[in-house]
Design a protein around this nucleic acid. Sequence first.
RNA 1: CGGGGUGUAGCGUAGCCCGGUAUCGCGUCUGCUUUGGGAGCAGAAGGUCGUAGGUUCAAAUCCUGCCACCCCGACCA
Length: 490
Amino acid sequence: MAFEKIKRSENYSEWYNNLVKDADLAEHAAVKGCMVIKPYGYAIWEKMQQQLDKMFKETGHSNAYFPLLIPKSFFEKEEKNAEGFAKECAVVTHYRLKVDENRKIIVDPDAKLEEELIIRPTSEAIIWNTYKGWIQSYRDLPILLNQWANVMRWEMRTRLFLRTSEFLWQEGHTAHATADEALIETKQMLEVYAEFSETFLGVPVIKGVKTENERFAGAVETYCIEGLMQDGKALQMGTSHFLGQNFAKAFDVKFQTKEGKLEHVWATSWGVSTRLMGALIMAHSDDEGLVLPPNLAPFQIVIVPIYRSDEERMKVEAAALQIKKNLEALNMSVKFDNRDTHKPGYKFAEWELKGVPLRIGIGPRDIENGTVELARRDTKEKQVVSIDGIEVFVKNLLSEIQAAIYTKAKSFRDANIHKVDTWDEFQKILEEKGGFISAHWDGTGDTEEKIKQLTKATIRCIPLNNELEAGKCVLTGNPSTQRVLFAKAY
RNA sequence: CGGGGUGUAGCGUAGCCCGGUAUCGCGUCUGCUUUGGGAGCAGAAGGUCGUAGGUUCAAAUCCUGCCACCCCGACCA
């Protein structure tokens, strides 16, 4: 049979790749490292977008759009930023093609651009060049913008959703009069991301700051949320950067204060991407397929009718449609799968693969008893419930599922944070169990780098509100004031 | 970019060593029977073997170049 599947425990990567394909989320495109997001996958992404967008607006932001192409000279202005991205930029050098003697399409050598254009790997450069023209006085501040866009980073090795050459994201770029205000914005957006991840994706995250080595190129401080996937690897799910005055200085963006002084503007930027799709998939799914939290599922409920004769079919459909209507009246999204080309068993399996949180099966037996069969995707539990009052019952059950998915992921995450005090133990836990390792670190980039060389583990973050605790660096034995989180990461 | 591997129908594959225009499964299409956990039977369509060239009477098979993909490394907010 075609549905022999790779088990999660056998080969996590292959399981993930097959799942993305089988659940109809995305596939590799004909373009190097790029992906096609298919309708079902995109529907989930749209749900994420809607919710995030709402949260951005609630915190005072507006959407805008800036160009895809960035003149090379803009890009060079913030040195660290340019350096950090230089190795993975696609460059536009010509603006025309032509047909040559052999009737082949070639790049017209006469159409060479005087200045090359960079396809944005991130938009700080073009946006700060624009902000320069918008900001003169303290009255022009703050600027609180977000853009939904695609960016391109020419990655050597790609994986669907987790790292593709082109990806979709949102990037917020704000400008402020004071450092304090910018820092508050940075932290606020980190909170927005954390809340989104936990409440909607059902993925618990650890909030923290990056070490200097892992910091965004051009940032003064990078805040992040880190999630843990089911194979014990960490995933950076979102970042919020305090950019200080780096970009304002690079692009010469100054404003006049109330007191009449000229000062550089303070900046933040923050983003999450289609990588969140990867997080969603890896955090909850099982051997049967995707497990979607109700808050993000394109369909929260699927109704599968069961019948033999046409007569039965008509009765069942009428009852099913009535249930659908009642559920929709309470703002639940329902798919009625009345395809006559597949049998119920096939549909059960298919919707499980696609992660629909709740399935309602209804057949002649139910019509007679005034019941339906309810099947939960997350626990696989089935129960027979009365049609009478089913809307409220299902509505509550969906909330319960949302909570259960989060709780399960959180238990897993918490069980996989290991406190470690010796180097032997560090290597052993990393090798055998994975997960986060909470250990002392002497605070130097050298040690961090050495640990990375030796084990492939990196410092994911220094957790916010970290308890201070005197200790010794797990590698060097040098004094340390707090534990940091290490993990192998995607 | 270095090391290894792969490329045959929509998907997964056999054949390659030892040249003779291609195997099987899934899927697709038609018909009948089925429908409460991925249906059964019968029949049919679909490829010219990544690409360019070479050797040969004859190339999926041998040789060379190129391309793509996968794994390992490097790289990766």
